[in-house]
Amino acid sequence: MTQVLATTVVVASLYALLAAGYVLVYRATRVLNLAQGDMMTLGGYFLFLVATAAPGEPARAIAGAAALSALAGFLIYRLLMRPMAGHPIFAAVLVTVTLGILLRAAIVLVYTDRIRHPLGLLGLANPARPLIGGAVVSTFDLFTVGAAAALFAALFLFLRFSPLGIQMRAAGEKPLLASQRGINFHLVFALSWALAGFAGALAGILYANNVRLDPSLGVLGLKAFAVALVGGLDSLGGVVPGALIVALVEVLSVRYGDPLLADVSPFLCLLAMLLVRPWGLYGTKEELERV
């Protein structure tokens, strides 16, 4: 049914945006950023912040929120993660868990946990868009799909062909050797965190306009983490099929199975993947030990 397919692609796009953040940080720094979901929420609230300060200017608000989130990612690396270099990985992961809690608490402190809707503040609308085949999606659903496609295309080109992208891949593989080649890997790592912040912000901004904004959006990050693992934690290419599979299972379980399965379907997919192919669809086998 076309509606099932349409909804699957939309949900997959949202998961893909978040999962990209996990993979970027993991590929570059070997750290699991379990605060990615809360960075998505942060991006949404940055949008709200700029939108309340300057209502009716969507371009500025979106650009501002994305820039602020990228900066936040950069600072998170510089101030929190860089001092953890040389310490065991799980300690760094715990730092990200704490970071997520702190981010959420800070947001609640400033904005309480009332549900917000920046759409009106931005002066935008979210009308329904019928598609061929009878499916209907919202305008921001389409933006989400477009943003995910654009981000992945951009990341592919960046990592494959640009000097900085190649340096990022190099630093991700062997930071020491990268240093011996003149690459300041701390800068490269900080950049990967900034990109993760940016990807999270895209997800947060789009979701806030499409559905709602409240401090508990971070739970979506948990589902996206399962998506990242299904696709292979160190593979950006694996995110797309991983997201599609998980989203399809989720949508199908609502339509034809028990709707309550929908909530856990990312983790059921993960469980299945761990039994069959633990390193994910496109992950590297040796990464297994690190997870």
């Binding site: 000097p163 190649i166 190099a170 062997k174 080649r181 003149g182 590297t284």
Partner: peptide, 23 residues
């Protein structure tokens, strides 16, 4: 510039990319 004893190339990068992974 140092040419190290072990871990001297980026294994997941191609030769061409190795030659670009430097500053």
């Amino acid at each position: 510039v140092l040419v190290p004893e072990r871990d001297k190339v980026f294994e997941t990068l191609t030769v061409q990319e190795n030659l670009r992974a430097l500053v």
